[in-house]
């Protein structure tokens, strides 16, 4: 569904990504695992068209989107959940949900969203940033579901959440997959990642150092934890 060929990226003088090649199949949940500063967030920003100085090629369902602007990518079905959740302080909860345009007929209706996330219905008139961290994370994911995006790119959605909430977010991603939406997820929590995903790409110093199936990750969990230093 999504393929990344030889993507390199720089921040000024610093090389942040070197020749990253990976793919995500339709209906999969795939994670990018690695420690802070490994280049995971930059990779997601490259996929979303937010990082300008990059080379290589990005394809979505066989269509080369490397030169497309980020709003065009969103309209082609990429949904973005940024690392800070990206909730607007100047928009109400409901407006946060309504802001992105609907891109596909699979899009959830507002009723569906509110049924799946009752807490958002209760707080629909409140300012988006007045929600708790977990609620903001739900809002950020629900916002993508309402557009009908084919693929969800989520930047560490479990960061800073309590174990109970992490579990809830895991359940949300499972139901997202059941709705036929493909997920590429940044995750530092290897245990959580292996409880959810099909495949994993290990990122270190801006490169994909290993690509593993979930069973391999479970077998080698200790070794990998040590290697990643997380």
């Amino acid at each position: 569904m999504l393929s990344v060929h030889g993507v390199s990226a720089r921040y000024g003088e610093a090389q942040v990504l070197t020749d990253v090649t990976l793919d995500v199949q339709q209906g999969e949940i795939v994670t990018l695992v690695g420690r802070n500063g490994a280049g995971k967030t930059t990779l997601l920003r490259c996929l979303m068209g937010l990082h300008r100085s990059m080379s290589g090629r990005v394809e979505l369902d066989g269509v080369d989107i490397t030169r497309r602007s980020s709003h065009q990518r969103a309209r082609l079905g990429l949904g973005y959940v940024p690392d800070d959740r990206g909730i607007y302080a100047s928009l109400s909860v409901e407006e946060n949900l309504l802001l992105p345009p609907v891109v596909d007929e699979r899009a959830w209706s507002m009723d569906q969203v509110y049924e799946a996330f009752p807490v958002l219905a209760d707080r629909r008139r409140q300012t988006g940033t007045h929600l708790s961290g977990g609620e903001q994370q739900m809002l950020s994911i629900a916002r993508v579901l309402r557009t009908g995006a084919r693929m969800l790119l989520a930047d560490e959605p479990t960061e800073g959440l309590s174990p109970l909430l992490v579990q809830q977010i895991g359940d949300i991603f499972r139901s997202v997959r059941e709705h036929g939406i493909t997920v590429l997820l940044i995750e530092q929590n290897l245990h959580f990642a292996s409880s959810l995903a099909d495949r994993h790409h290990l990122i270190a110093r801006g490169q994909v150092v290993e690509s593993l199936d979930n069973s391999e990750v479970k077998e080698r969990e200790h070794e990998l934890l040590e290697y990643l230093g997380i």
Binding site: M48, G49, S69, A74, Y80, G86, Y88, S90, P100, T147
Partner: peptide, 16 residues
């Protein structure tokens, strides 16, 4: 309002 607050994010959400 959204573009004023977060122009980059707003375009990543599909708004031109």
């Amino acid at each position: 309002r959204a573009s004023t607050e977060r122009p980059e994010l707003t375009s990543a959400l599909g708004v031109n």
